[in-house]
Design a protein around this nucleic acid. Structure first.
Lengths: 363, 363
DNA sequence: TTGTATGCGTTATCAG
DNA sequence: CTGATAACGCATACAA
């Protein structure tokens, strides 16, 4: 005792039971085995504390037993939620998860992901928030026949399965919410101009407002050229340097909204009395702020789960690409309220543009 | 073209080059190979797009090629930072990362981690913020000879390497910072009572204050019995229901501080004028708030890096356990300031307990 | 129902 | 310096 005895193999078990290795293998995989042998094996395996070699099994099966998940930075709270969904799905399978942040010390380096692909080290690849720079990566995966799926990519990606939220719908929800509260003059601050999500969110908002007879004035549409916290702060500084002529502002994502709120707060802007704020994504962090952020949420965990399913259950024809859209839902917290009459009086109310093509108010 | 030709193996390369498989293997591993053959192989490998099978290589080498990282919930911002450090180290090695959250749908289920251990599926295991319930897990790892390391465990863990921050030092830094600002009456709110980190932070604070001639009054020491945001909110409600008799409060971690601040903000408490707030951990999220949270930071990324090193470079004697402590550093943001004379006047200033064993003021 | 033989792709050993 | 060949641990046609 105390000796470092080697890990028992399938052969050890077979020898001990007086049967062939293949019989043990069959037993392990739930195939035909006589009751007697089954009982005996069960006993011996228990006694030896035997368990299959993951590596050998995968080698034999010609699979890798894990999928890869690539993301700019695993710090992103958005990604963290996605990851949770992925883990949740994987926990029901015989597959594990490999993680790779492509941006490590401020520098983009997808080397590891390429290695995964070239070495066929993963059975599938999930790329979250892919940007243009990820294109060669997708090509490599496709060429190497590694199943790949993009979750909420920045741009349109050809030839790969894509999961994204119904951002247009999300924008529309926000429009309705704000209009219902009584807002008539609303601003929007976009993310990177190449982000299709940002565009869709704006479109949804604009169309949603139009349906209620309200025009999103071009002068009230801004761009932060980024989805990051800092950009939200910078934008706020510029936005708040002029007198407020809107009662609500919608930021293209929560991070921007966080940045905006922080600056607005320090400027002493009363939220939501003076200005209502809305974000997109539904980060849990939004509930930590005061006021807590109202936001159109993506079902990130579900997206993570579905990504795994699509990847591992190799749905559909090989060449066929699929695009799945997930509904967003509105999380109403504290950063939105009726526009305050008090503040409305003291500031110059912008005249809302004519209710152009908008249908009649369905109120 | 277009055919699904199989991935070339080492044998393919050998045949094509007219040499033995073993020669190719030697070439791949940088052993003795004649210049001529070397050039030829390099060319053929390039041409074939050959790359080694990760699985087969690991099987042959008797290793797994990846380490496992276990955590309650991968959502934790603290963990996210640790993960970043781990990834950073691993990116320099031929090792990849497997992730497992032990709490998935509100329920604790370490099954996967046990599988990693039993199947010898990882070359090492990092367990972050281990609690008492993780004990059997460590035992299993030890028994299965799987190297394991605990990062910032809640309690003392016998027989395994441990990495943690110098929480006593962190507490002392906060003490000095607050005293330097002019605070004399300070409160502390602890985390779970079994958390050794929480205890050490309190100790550091208390001793640090004592060195400056200030007593941390027992009635100013509270416990939230948790490290979670919500607990901070609950605590704030109770704490703020009575008139303030301190000018600063130190929470046992940032999450608690976030919760506390949110409630205090909504109560209209002016921070830092009326009350200074300090947390522990140094989460980046603290910079998003207004006021941004002053905090004693753990070098989480570095801890992640070192954890990998210790794990993979199998330092020291097998039986020997090591405990490494990392220095904390103070991040001074906006939530701390000199106690305001204005507020000091309107509230009953508690008489500070006699400067018992404390040495004279070094001011 | 069970056993035999072979393959999975590498690495390591040991002659040549 | 190079080439057979035996592990590595398991899965699976195929034969018995």
């Amino acid at each position: 005792m105390g000796g470092v005895r080697k890990k028992p193999t399938i052969a050890t078990v077979a020898a001990r039971a007086g049967v062939a290795v293949s019989t043990v293998s069959r037993y392990l995989n739930g195939r035909y085995v006589s009751r007697a042998v089954r009982a005996r094996l069960s006993e011996i395996i228990e006694e030896l504390g035997y368990s299959r070699s993951w590596t050998a099994r995968n080698l034999s099966l010609g699979r890798r037993g894990s999928i890869g998940v690539a993301i700019d930075s695993s710090e992103d709270p958005w990604f963290v939620q996605l990851l949770k969904g992925i883990e949740e799905d994987l926990s029901t399978r015989d597959t594990s998860l490999m993680l790779c942040s492509t941006v490590v010390r401020k520098t983009y380096d997808p080397k590891i992901v390429y290695q995964w692909i070239q070495d066929h080290r993963v059975d599938g690849l999930i790329v979250a928030r892919a940007q243009r720079r990820e294109r060669p990566l997708f090509r490599a995966a496709l060429k190497a026949q590694v199943p790949v799926i993009a979750v909420a990519p920045f741009e349109i990606i050809a030839g790969v399965n894509v999961l994204r939220s119904n951002n247009v719908g999300g924008g529309a929800m926000i429009a309705d919410h704000l209009v219902n509260l009584g807002h008539r003059s609303i601003a929007f601050a976009g993310g990177p101009s190449h982000s299709i999500d940002s565009k869709h969110r704006l479109r949804g908002l604009r169309e949603g407002l139009a349906r209620r007879g309200i025009t999103l004035a071009p002068k009230h549409i801004f761009s932060c050229e980024s989805f990051e916290f800092d950009a939200g702060t910078v934008f706020a500084e510029q936005f708040l340097s002029r007198p407020l002529d809107v009662t609500a502002i919608v930021l293209a994502n929560d991070a921007l909204a966080f940045g905006f709120m922080r600056f607005a707060l320090r400027r002493g802007i009363k939220m939501p009395e003076e200005l209502s704020i809305v974000g997109f994504d539904g980060l849990v962090e939004g509930a930590f702020l005061y006021p807590a952020l109202t936001t159109a949420a993506q079902p990130m965990q579900e997206m993570g789960r579905v990504a795994c399913q699509r990847l591992l259950e190799s749905h559909g024809v090989p060449g066929h690409v699929e695009r799945i859209e997930f509904p967003m839902h509105l999380i109403v917290r504290e950063s939105t309220a009726r526009p305050s009459a008090e503040f409305a009086k003291v500031r110059p109310l912008t005249l809302v543009g004519s209710p152009t093509a908008g249908p009649m108010d369905d109120a």
